[in-house]
């Protein structure tokens, strides 16, 4: 399973062991908590030191403290702040816009990716779809931007399309592999018990593929957040992705940093939700 995670996403996901419950990162990191947290803390300290000593150009990279203050103002807002400051208490609406798009795009990707993946992996006649998908998969979401705008215009639909596309690939690949990996012995057991085509698909192939599908869901939700920045870049005027570009154009690198951290945290939380869901759904070991 770790092979699948690495190959389909190009980066390494923290591998979740089923043994220590749905939130192993919290438990297993206990012992290494100090070591694990030390590195980012060290980097932030070095960064602050560089800023304080004016070794870092404040216009290009504000100090961590400045970023944190701006972030706080962005979330909570400050009475009497400059009226032209669009980052005064507007964090929540932006985050919600992006969250809504991620949820919708991810849902579309699941609704298409899971059934198509299962059909591709289980039925020879559907496997002809696979080469097309694999040819399109390496095309980055960025490259789809002109196509998306041409098709949907500068609208929410355009952003949704890109987000759904990003999430679709890991989901369809894992669903098809999960279906392909159905144990032949279980298929024989179901056959001799009188299961015909539909029963075999819904009562054997799908449950058997669920662990692999959930790997795809985790990767898919991560890809959805990655796509948010590109998706909101041109297509819409709201959301964290839009804020990233807007703040950059305005020279507000402090907001850019805060925005990146926000996306990271929201992506991390989405992943935790999928992991929690997996623990609720999958109570068995193969």
């Amino acid at each position: 399973m770790s092979d699948l995670e690495i190959k389909s996403a190009g980066f390494v996901l923290p591998v979740v062991s089923g043994k220590s419950g749905p939130f192993p990162l919290v438990k297993s990191v206990n012992g290494h908590a100090i070591g694990a947290a030390a590195i980012p803390i060290l980097l932030i300290l070095l960064w602050q030191l560089g800023s304080s000593l004016n070794l870092i150009n404040a216009a290009m990279l504000p100090s961590p403290i400045d970023c944190a203050i701006s972030w706080k103002r962005w979330i909570i807002g400050q009475a009497g702040g400059r009226s032209l400051d669009s980052y005064n208490g507007t964090w929540l609406p932006s985050a919600l816009y992006s969250l809504e798009r991620v949820v919708e795009g991810f849902a579309i990707a699941c609704a298409i990716g899971i059934p198509v993946g299962i059909l591709i992996g289980w039925f020879k006649s559907f496997s002809i779809l696979d080469p097309t998908i694999q040819l399109l998969r390496p095309v980055p979401i960025t490259a789809w931007l002109p196509f998306s705008i041409a098709l949907f215009g500068i609208q929410n639909k355009s952003a949704l399309f890109l987000i759904a596309l990003g999430a679709f690939y890991p989901i369809v690949v894992s669903a098809s592999q999960g279906a392909r990996d159905t144990a032949p012995l279980l298929v024989r057991a179901a056959e001799m018990l009188g299961a015909r085509s539909w029963t075999m698909l819904t009562r054997v192939v799908v449950p058997s593929a669920l662990p692999t599908i959930f790997v795809g869901l985790r990767l898919g939700v991560g890809a959805a957040w990655t796509a948010v920045v590109i998706a909101e870049m041109v297509s819409v005027k709201t959301g964290l992705g839009y804020v990233l570009w807007d703040a950059y154009y305005l020279g507000r690198m402090d907001i850019v940093i805060a925005d990146m951290v926000s996306i990271g945290l929201l992506g991390f939380s989405s992943d935790l939700i999928i992991v929690w869901l997996r623990a609720r759904v999958i109570k068995w070991r193969h």
């Binding site: 012995l185 279980l186 024989r188 057991a189 179901a190 056959e191 001799m192 018990l193 009188g194 054997v204 449950p207 058997s208 669920l210 999958i282 109570k283 068995w284 070991r285 193969h286």
Partner: peptide
Amino acid sequence: VRPSPSRAVVFQEAALFPW
């Protein structure tokens, strides 16, 4: 010619559905 419940099988590896 094909599998059927009228000739049910008990396998060496139980082959139970784990879920």
